[in-house]
Simulated scan of single mutants.
Amino acid sequence: MTVRAPPPGTLGNLTPDEQEKLQQAWIHLLRLCGSKSLEGVSFSEPVPDLTHELRQQMSDKSPDTFREGLWGFILSEHPDALVLRFLRARKWDVEKAMVMLVSAVNWRLERDLAETIIHKGESVGLKKAPSADDQGFISQYRSGKSFVHSVDKESRLVYIIRVREHDPNAQSGDSMETYILHNIESLKMLMKPPDDKCCLIFDMTGFGLKNMDFHVVKFLVSVFEARYPETLGVILIHNAPFVFWGLWNMIKGWLDPVIASKINFTRKSADLLQFVPAENLQTSYGGKDSFEYKYIEPVEGENAKLEEVEKRAEIQHERNELVDEFELRTSEWASLAADTSAEKEKASRRTETAEHLSKNYWTLDPYIRARTVFHRLGMVG
Score class of each variant (00 low, 15 high):
M1F: 14
P7L: 01
P7Q: 04
P8R: 03
P16T: 00
D17R: 08
D17W: 04
E20C: 04
L30K: 01
S35E: 14
K36M: 10
S37G: 05
F43G: 13
F43R: 13
P46I: 12
P46F: 12
P46V: 13
T51Y: 03
E53M: 11
K61F: 10
R67K: 15
E68Q: 14
E68N: 13
L70M: 06
L70E: 02
G72S: 11
I74K: 04
L75H: 07
H78Q: 09
D80A: 00
K91Q: 03
W92V: 02
A97F: 01
M98D: 11
V99A: 04
L101W: 03
S103V: 05
R108Y: 08
L109P: 12
L109W: 14
L109F: 14
L113N: 08
K120G: 13
G121R: 00
L126R: 02
A129L: 10
Q135D: 11
I138S: 01
Q140S: 12
Y141G: 00
Y141P: 04
R142S: 14
G144Q: 04
K153Y: 07
R162K: 15
R162S: 11
R162V: 15
R164D: 11
A170K: 13
S175W: 15
Y179N: 06
Y179H: 08
H182M: 06
N183V: 10
M191V: 12
P193T: 02
K197Q: 14
L200Q: 09
I201Y: 08
F202R: 08
D203V: 15
G206C: 09
G208D: 15
L209F: 07
V216C: 05
V221W: 09
E225K: 03
R227L: 10
Y228W: 03
Y228D: 03
T231P: 04
I235T: 08
I237E: 05
I237A: 02
H238F: 12
A240L: 03
P241K: 05
F242S: 13
F244W: 11
G246W: 07
L247T: 06
W248L: 09
W248G: 08
M250T: 11
I251T: 00
K252V: 07
G253R: 08
I259T: 10
S261W: 01
I263M: 10
L273S: 12
V276W: 00
A278N: 13
S284A: 11
G287P: 01
S290Q: 15
S290E: 15
S290W: 13
F291R: 13
E292P: 11
Y293P: 13
Y293D: 06
I296N: 02
E297S: 13
E300I: 01
N303T: 06
A304F: 07
A304W: 07
K311N: 12
R312W: 02
R312F: 00
R312S: 07
I315C: 07
R319W: 09
S331A: 09
S331T: 10
A334H: 05
A334I: 04
S335E: 05
S335T: 11
A342E: 15
E343Q: 07
E343T: 01
R350P: 02
E352Q: 15
T353V: 14
T353R: 12
E355Q: 15
N360P: 06
P366F: 00
T372Y: 05
V373S: 02
F374M: 11
R376P: 09
R376E: 14
G381A: 02
